[in-house]
Design a protein around this nucleic acid. Structure first.
Lengths: 238, 238
DNA sequence: ATTTTATTGTCTATAAAGTAGACAATAAAA
DNA sequence: TTTTATTGTCTACTTTATAGACAATAAAAT
């Protein structure tokens, strides 16, 4: 099974996913560091099998990297300027050093073309994910979106536009709950919103607004041991 | 210059554009009827030259079909289920009847693969457009969006999703003016909004809202000859 | 010349939604 | 028992949205 064969995969077309997680009041993105070249960082991505739909392909990539199969996943934009080539990988292939690629010749041919990438973004409960490495990854880690390294090609821009899409959709489509554990306090929900919009919200009005949406189910109180009134736990009602 | 050569054009990838125009209180879409087969209707589309960015390619297609070069054009979604093939064209090619294709063999090979299409939508002043035919068009016409024929592949769905995108963006991005002539009355603007949302608006409040946006420049009155108060003309201030 | 008709521009009143300030309730430490 | 930090909610105020009303007016009808 050759990854770089146009008979099996669609050439010049890739899928890249911005996988969002939330931890310590910060949005994080799953980033892979490749196990060749020097400090080549990329978004989790892959190619489209000839017999897979694009949503299906994106979901498979997500399963491979996160181990999860029930995931919020949405296409947001396709990126395709004329000069969009994976030069860092080509450079490595040119250097005649061994790489983990099965067929170097096919890889060179494959990557020497310009690529168009369909961008997806995903929202996951960061605690449920065990980042999985593929053959080409040295490591796969959650990095805070505020301090990402320089990514390959236009991947930094892809993250930025995914974030803009998330901001547009968070309120309207009520998708923020995908980033939280099953139960959470109102404060935790607010802190998530503040992380996404990078902006403070008034506590009283935030609570009023959220409760008015009638999508939250109030559960028992959460006694944390802190010297103050215990907050209620909530669950997303679906 | 072969249209169906992967050296020159990206294989398995196409661009299709939903070109919106506005006339007689109705949204219209530019639809081409192909000059082979029977009643094959499609969105204006094309392929991506190896040396063109996707936005560039979409713009070129638009220029070819409308004659306009300054156009509101935006990508909205990419369509790519696994079984997305252009069967109607393949059927015609199979029939061994003459078609306007330059190289039938190359065409068969080209179209026998599954295609992924990047969807764009455009807003134009319908009066400025002279629909242009290509070699493959029998006719290119403005059809009311409410009464489109059955289009090829998933093009009807592409129109529907383009309309949903237009509805989401009309207010926020103030792009409706691209569908109107240089000057227009408040009633004409309101009728456009009503056509897009398929919904009536209150005249007094619509005017108040539009004026509060401070993007309209009030010009002289328009004397139509009608037996009533003459409305002001407005221009979009940019 | 005056009245009539259809439409326009804008005003006011009311309703709904968003924002800001206040305070009692409370879990655990002091 | 008091203190502290936080939570849940109330009220007042501001802004925005919705609904009803009416004078102004261009041209036809009288």
């Amino acid at each position: 099974m050759n990854q770089f064969n146009p008979e099996q995969y669609i050439p010049q077309l890739s899928i890249d996913s911005v996988i969002f997680g939330y931890r310590k009041k910060q949005l994080h993105v799953l980033i892979s560091k490749m196990n060749f070249g020097h400090n080549i960082y990329t978004l989790p991505g892959g190619f489209i099998s000839q017999d897979q739909g694009i949503d299906e392909a994106a979901l498979q990539i997500l399963k491979e990297r996160t181990g999860l199969k029930d995931i919020f996943l949405e296409q947001y934009k396709t990126f395709g300027p004329a000069d969009r080539k994976n030069n860092p990988i080509l450079d490595v292939l040119d250097q005649d050093k061994p790489t983990p690629m099965p067929d170097e010749q096919a890889a060179v041919e494959w990557f020497s073309k310009r690529f168009i990438s369909i961008g997806y973004y995903a929202l996951v409960d960061i605690n449920k994910v065990k980042p999985q490495k593929t053959d080409l990854d040295e490591s796969v880690d959650w990095l805070p979106i505020e301090s990402l390294p320089s990514l390959i090609m236009d991947h930094n821009q892809m993250v930025q536009e995914a974030l803009e899409t998330l901001r547009r959709n968070l309120d309207e489509k009520l998708i923020g709950f995908n980033l939280l554990p099953e139960t959470f306090t109102m404060r935790e929900l607010q802190e998530l919103y503040e992380a996404v919009y990078d902006k403070a919200f008034a506590r009283n009005n935030f609570q009023k607004k959220m409760l008015s949406l009638e999508v939250l189910e109030r559960l028992e109180k959460k006694f944390t041991g802190a010297a103050n009134k215990a907050p209620y736990l909530y669950r997303f009602r679906r």
